[in-house]
Lab assay of single mutants.
Amino acid sequence: MEVRTIKVFTTVDNINLHTQVVDMSMTYGQQFGPTYLDGADVTKIKPHNSHEGKTFYVLPNDDTLRVEAFEYYHTTDPSFLGRYMSALNHTKKWKYPQVNGLTSIKWADNNCYLATALLTLQQIELKFNPPALQDAYYRARAGEAANFCALILAYCNKTVGELGDVRETMSYLFQHANLDSCKRVLNVVCKTCGQQQTTLKGVEAVMYMGTLSYEQFKKGVQIPCTCGKQATKYLVQQESPFVMMSAPPAQYELKHGTFTCASEYTGNYQCGHYKHITSKETLYCIDGALLTKSSEYKGPITDVFYKENSYTTTIK
């Protein structure tokens, strides 16, 4: 009895394709271990004539594949690729409408935090270190965002349907971005203890939790000093293409032309909904596939993004 075979390709990165001759009487799992086709788990399936010449994702289970996976995804987590594939199996079914010149995501599976993050990423200057993220990001900007969303979920250790947080998501993504040249110098002034300067680099240099107003941050924000008295913390120097200011959701007025974009969060910790506000020729609110415009805006804002380049204080 002759062994019926077909020729397929296996890959971990969709760049390096490895030619395989597979036995049609055995499952993919018996031949390769966990195997995925377009995100779908085909591990328990036997090869079919229609699979001839198709590319299958496999887990990096030998040295060659491990090197290829690390170079593309910059992670050695053995569960990463499987999590990416199972997320992709959902995100490829989502709709990605162009809204006001940006790629958004039609609401499904509690994905409003991903839509808000995706919209924000198209408006701030950011370059990702893992080629996987950078490639998928370019495709997302062009309207094909399924891979990018699935990668975000995998890097953030999230599953489809789980509630997510924009600030946490951005923080994970910033860790995989090139923020080497970003720098922030802060000064804390206390009447009792004097003053202390701190220099922050990388992710810490672009994120701040405690106030939404970048102007206020430049002037000074009140913080408790270690001595128990009130101290003032203010920005001395900022070198970065953008800054992200966050605070627990509270009524906040966004003035046209003073910011790049913002995240609105309605609801409580267990259950809520994100919308995205962007400042173009007027203010726009993007909620999944829905767009509304207004000249002014007041609502429960939790993150505001500002364009920056270089700032030095005039406070002496």
Rank of each mutant, 00 (worst) to 15 (best):
N129R: 13
P300Y: 09
E52C: 10
A108L: 01
Q31S: 10
F70G: 13
A146V: 00
A136N: 09
T211D: 10
Y172L: 13
K255M: 08
H273C: 00
L200F: 12
T199L: 08
Y113F: 09
T64M: 07
M207I: 07
T159V: 10
E162V: 02
D38H: 10
L153W: 04
T198H: 15
W94Y: 00
Q216H: 13
K229T: 05
N157V: 00
Y84G: 00
Y208L: 08
T278E: 01
N111Y: 00
E2D: 12
Q31W: 10
K46F: 12
G82N: 15
A69L: 12
D38Q: 10
T55V: 10
V221A: 06
T260M: 15
S246W: 02
A250Q: 12
P130R: 01
Q237I: 05
N187M: 11
P78K: 03
A154L: 00
G272F: 07
Y28L: 05
K93S: 09
A247P: 04
Y155H: 04
Q122A: 02
M244G: 06
F174E: 01
F56W: 01
V67C: 09
Q134S: 11
T5I: 11
Q98F: 09
Q195D: 10
F128H: 02
D287K: 02
K255F: 05
A108R: 11
Y137E: 02
V8I: 14
V160G: 05
K191C: 05
T75M: 08
L290M: 13
I152M: 13
L17V: 10
N49F: 09
K201S: 14
A132S: 05
P60A: 06
F242A: 04
V206L: 09
Y137K: 01
Y138F: 11
Q196S: 14
G194R: 03
M170R: 00
T226W: 07
L88G: 00
T266I: 13
G161W: 04
D109E: 13
T211Q: 09
S263A: 14
N157H: 14
D303G: 03
S310T: 01
P130T: 13
V21K: 12
T10Y: 11
N49E: 09
F174H: 00
I301Y: 05
G288N: 14
E144C: 09
K307N: 14
V166R: 02
Y137D: 01
K54D: 07
G39R: 02
Q251H: 11
H176A: 04
K316W: 09
R66W: 07
G29H: 07
R141K: 11
Q196V: 12
P60R: 04
I301E: 04
T55F: 03
M244S: 07
T302L: 05
N16C: 06
S104R: 04
H256F: 11
P224V: 13
C261V: 05
Y269S: 10
L114G: 02
A142Y: 13
L102C: 06
Y269A: 15
D23L: 11
K158M: 02
G33N: 00
S310N: 08
E253R: 11
T116Y: 03
A150Q: 01
G33C: 00
G194Y: 04
S50V: 14
P131E: 05
F9A: 08
I223R: 05
E296C: 14
D303M: 08
R141D: 00
Q20L: 05
F305C: 08
Q270W: 09
L290S: 13
T314M: 14
K307T: 15
S79M: 12
S240L: 03
R184K: 07
N309M: 12
T159W: 08
V160H: 12
P47W: 02
T64R: 12
T211V: 09
I15M: 10
A154T: 07
K127T: 10
T103P: 01
F80P: 00
F305S: 05
D135F: 08
A247C: 10
V166M: 15
K233E: 13
I301T: 01
H256P: 15
S263L: 07
L163M: 15
C261P: 00
D13T: 07
G164N: 12
T226V: 15
G39K: 03
P47I: 01
H51I: 00
V160E: 01
N147T: 12
V160A: 15
Y72D: 06
L163N: 15
A115G: 09
Q195A: 15
K298T: 14
Y72Q: 13
C156W: 01
E71T: 10
N111D: 06
N129Y: 09
T27H: 07
I152P: 01
T10F: 12
T278Y: 13
P34L: 08
D303Q: 04
N61C: 14
Y72P: 05
Y252I: 11
S213W: 05
A40I: 09
H48D: 13
L290A: 11
Q122T: 02
K106I: 07
Y265D: 01
G39S: 13
D77N: 04
V206P: 04
T55S: 10
K255E: 15
E2I: 09
G272L: 03
E239M: 09
Y306I: 05
L121F: 12
C112V: 02
P224R: 13
S246H: 02
S213T: 02
Q222C: 12
I152R: 02
K307L: 10
P249K: 07
G53D: 13
P78H: 14
H90I: 09
Q175G: 08
Q251I: 15
D62Y: 07
T313V: 12
T266S: 12
D109Q: 15
A69S: 09
P248S: 07
T10E: 03
A289H: 15
T103F: 10
S240M: 03
D13A: 02
K93Y: 15
Y297C: 07
F80N: 00
Y96C: 00
A177K: 04
G267K: 13
T211H: 10
G164V: 03
G272M: 05
Y57I: 14
A136Y: 07
A87P: 03
Q237W: 14
F174N: 02
T302M: 00
C190R: 03
T258C: 13
N178F: 03
P241E: 15
Y234C: 08
L133S: 01
E215W: 07
S246T: 08
R4K: 13
T55Q: 06
V188H: 15
G101P: 03
M207P: 04
T192K: 13
V3N: 14
K106D: 02
K93T: 15
T232K: 09
T43Y: 08
V67F: 12
D62L: 06
T314P: 08
I152D: 01
M85V: 04
L151R: 01
C112A: 14
G53T: 10
D38A: 13
Y284S: 08
